[in-house]
Amino acid sequence: MHGPATAGWLLVALCAAAGGFCLLRLRGGAPEQRRSAGGEALMGFGMAAMAVPAAVLTPPRWVWVAYAVVFGAAALHVLVPARGRYPHEHRHRSHHLLGMLAMVYMAGAMAAAPGGAHSTHAGVGASGTPLVTGVLLVYFAGYVLWAGTRLLPVAGTVPAAPGAPVAAAGRYDRAELASACRLSMGLAMLAMLLTL
């Protein structure tokens, strides 16, 4: 996005790593888990590309329109009900939908910016934060706090012994790794919205 170049590259690395991990999660698990991992991989790589510092790459307007179309289609894909959906997955699907719509919103804001997206972020402060940006900031800040608390160890759980073998099929399906991936993408989304 449009902060210092070092912060931009760190954001690119974080999002690309999260997207890569989500690609690894596509290898196993139930169909719903693979579908979720695919959406998260798309978000991770899309956010990584969007976070490339402006000094390195200033894409033309049509690129931002293409982003909006891709993530709009992904949002529609999230809305399509799949067979065998479990009730507890509704909250997670809602989070995916909101993330995809946030990407559409950011891409639309960049496409609508006069002179390209990379020249407008400094001018937002004069008129204040737009309502949609503020609502998304509040949501993702709350999500990051909630997801962070889910990674805290629970009293009474026994950690695996060091050197204990991990089943090959379940290596990337562990809930805490998926939660850490979602937390990192939530942090990245929060950082990107702050620069919008």
Rank of each mutant, 00 (worst) to 15 (best):
R150E: 00
Y143M: 09
T58F: 03
L136Q: 01
A16K: 04
T120Y: 15
H95D: 13
L187N: 07
P165F: 02
A141K: 02
A73I: 12
P114Q: 06
A164V: 07
V166P: 00
A107K: 01
G128H: 05
Y67H: 09
A112I: 06
L196T: 06
V78S: 02
R91D: 12
Y172C: 09
E40M: 14
A147N: 07
Y86H: 10
Y67P: 01
A161R: 15
G20H: 03
T120H: 15
L11P: 08
M189T: 13
A54G: 14
P165T: 08
H95F: 09
V104G: 01
M1P: 14
F140P: 05
V52P: 14
T120E: 11
E89W: 02
V56A: 06
L187V: 15
A178S: 12
G148L: 10
V65W: 09
V56L: 06
G84A: 06
H96P: 00
R27F: 12
P153G: 00
G170W: 04
G156I: 02
G115S: 08
G99L: 11
A17V: 02
H118M: 11
E32R: 08
H121T: 13
V65Y: 07
G186E: 06
A191T: 04
P162C: 04
A68I: 03
T120A: 15
L131Q: 13
G72E: 11
L177I: 03
M1C: 09
T133C: 02
A141F: 11
V144W: 03
R61H: 02
S119C: 13
A178Y: 10
M185T: 02
Y143I: 00
P153E: 03
A168E: 09
L137M: 11
V78F: 00
G125H: 15
V12M: 08
A102V: 07
P53T: 10
L97V: 00
Y143Q: 08
L10K: 05
Y139P: 00
V52C: 08
G84C: 06
V138L: 15
A68N: 09
A161I: 06
A66P: 06
P165I: 08
P114D: 08
V78Q: 00
C181D: 14
Y143D: 13
H118Y: 06
R171L: 15
L10N: 05
L98Y: 04
T120L: 15
Q33F: 09
M189V: 11
A178I: 00
L190T: 15
L151Y: 02
V144E: 12
R182F: 03
A49N: 02
G29Q: 06
A147G: 10
M103S: 08
P4C: 13
A191C: 14
M106C: 10
L196N: 04
